[in-house]
Amino acid sequence: MSTATGATASDAPVAPATTQGERGIGRRAPGWVIVARKEFSDHLRSVRFPILLIVLGLSAVVPLYFAADAIRSVASQISDPRAIFLALFVLPPSDVPIPPVYGFVGIVAPLLGVAFSFDAINSERSDGTLPRLLSQPIHRDDVITGKFVAGLATIMLVLVSVVLVISGFGIARLGIVPTFGEIERVVVWLLLTIVWVSLWLAFGLLLSVVFRRAATAALAGFGIWLLFQIFGQLLVGLIARVVAPYATAATAQEALSLKALSDTITRFVPLTLYQEGSRVLLNPSETTVSTPATVGQLAQYQQQIPTLLSLDQSLALVMPHVVALVALSAVCFAIAFVVFMRQEVRA
């Protein structure tokens, strides 16, 4: 290296750029990749990782354990190739009031997303590592992007493993072999789940940028999660009932439009978006995202010849949900990004 730099010293005008090249600045991995790699290995070694394993593992094992009998009996009854493999993910346990796998993931994923990002930036600040990190030849956005990617990669690693374990359980214990179409649907559902986790990761990042103390950020994050989880649907349901009381509507026409409005209001809770999306994606016989509003609709719904939607038809059905979730995540990340870029390096 020393001889090479000695050589560049003679061609003076372009020397600074050449010197940078000599040092490998041009050839090395992008800054965010280096940051992400370090954060990822930190995550794997942290206490959070076993917790993530346990929480996500339980959210798969518990519903599956209780639903296994139901799935087996359903599987033995039907002869046509209904998507029985997907029942592993969507069939709720018959005798215990707990949600199916996708419902559990919907509840738990936000918690994990926040848990893996609430201290991303503020801990660097309080540990005094931020100025040192930012004085290295990387862009400031590399730091926040790298941390986001690392958190997402960690959660997805575990989530994919859990899905594989569920599938393995289905194949080995229940003798359910997935068709190609079913695998496709699970993969698309995983993509939707990535978006869902991203939303909460980005939200946690935002908190870590805004709150200087990690404890405050964690508290705020879990508080808001709890708010959405418990009171969100309650509150939105209440608002919907006041604004759009479709049950007491005078005419059927009115009832239908009020029901549509009510559905729209409930979709202001991101969890609803994710769960409706998951339900449709994992269940090809699901032909609508809304529940029937009138008795007539219900009857019509029940009289439908059971059909299986193709994946693109299901996707078309939930596309607005997916777009809304992607937009929400993007907005969260963008705010975190902008605030971080404008912050002073100093504490």
């Binding site: 010197t19 600045i25 540990d127 005094g128 100025p131 040192r132 030849p137 990387i138």
Partner: peptide, 17 residues
């Protein structure tokens, strides 16, 4: 980036992971 590649900086109250 080029400047930071050639300048070593020790911040006040430096910290490590």
């Amino acid at each position: 980036l080029e400047v930071k590649g050639r300048v070593g900086y020790l911040p006040d109250a430096v910290g490590f992971y």
